[in-house]
Write a protein that binds this DNA or RNA. Sequence first.
DNA 1: CACATTTATGCAACATTGATGCATAAATAT
DNA 2: ATATTTATGCATCAATGTTGCATAAATGTG
Lengths: 142, 142
Amino acid sequence: MGNKTKASITDMLRASNLSITDTRVKILELFMDSNGALEHSSFEKLAGHSFDRVTVYRTLQTFLDKGIIHSIPTTDTSIRYALCKSDCSEHDHHDHHIHFKCEECGNTICLDDTNIPEIHLPKGYAAHNIDVVVSGVCKQCK
Amino acid sequence: MGNKTKASITDMLRASNLSITDTRVKILELFMDSNGALEHSSFEKLAGHSFDRVTVYRTLQTFLDKGIIHSIPTTDTSIRYALCKSDCSEHDHHDHHIHFKCEECGNTICLDDTNIPEIHLPKGYAAHNIDVVVSGVCKQCK
DNA sequence: CACATTTATGCAACATTGATGCATAAATAT
DNA sequence: ATATTTATGCATCAATGTTGCATAAATGTG
């Protein structure tokens, strides 16, 4: 998981001015243990019923606000979330990578080293953010 | 909207082997009258309560299956739908355009003439579909 | 055109997902 | 160790999506 280890979880939280609570630590651990994006329902499955549904919603929202995680668009109901790279902060995201959703295993991962290509918009349109989601078959399922 | 006029709605349905019903005609009209993507709740607002919520769900699913509409991923809960171009069919989609979501007016539109650029995936990944959603400010809101 | 058959619709009921207010519990600051 | 701030859990509610089944509408056939 790059330079983010469990040992540094408390540092991450402190860096974002968030108090260290069991829920937050556990949710960050789940992110780090999974090698893909998680949707809301994953947390209840993975962590059992160790914390309340509402707490999960609020924790994810807090992490989003602080730039610790980012959301990934889907065509189904659920929103997926993944950890941001270490150089993201509250008002400064650099998640210029694409997302890959495997049609076999259902997993969604961040392809951190695949850059988003330049997109030539028609005259009059200003782009602030570009989301790219590629679906297909991943390395493992091939 | 292109070459799809209201007069051809029944032709579209017949071409997809769908029976002509009030609901289907009305929903297709709503798609043609709007110059953007519609989400589920739009239909109840636009059409009043002329048909049941369940019917809308099932109709949209049918249109998706038949390749009449396509879905557009979002990071909020709602899924948006837009008409496919005329050269799409049940097993053969050609929607290689990008989507633009305006942060001002909230509207999502298909930029039919903006091609999706080549994306260079890491070794071992096979792409079947690429979704690009650009958010920013549209021509009208600028 | 009338009738049989197929298909779509509407209703009821339910499941899932997400949001809010408030009292309590836990974490931080002093 | 205690006061203050913040997060959590519970109850409740709202919105969204699903399923089964009876009825209604559309199509196919004589």
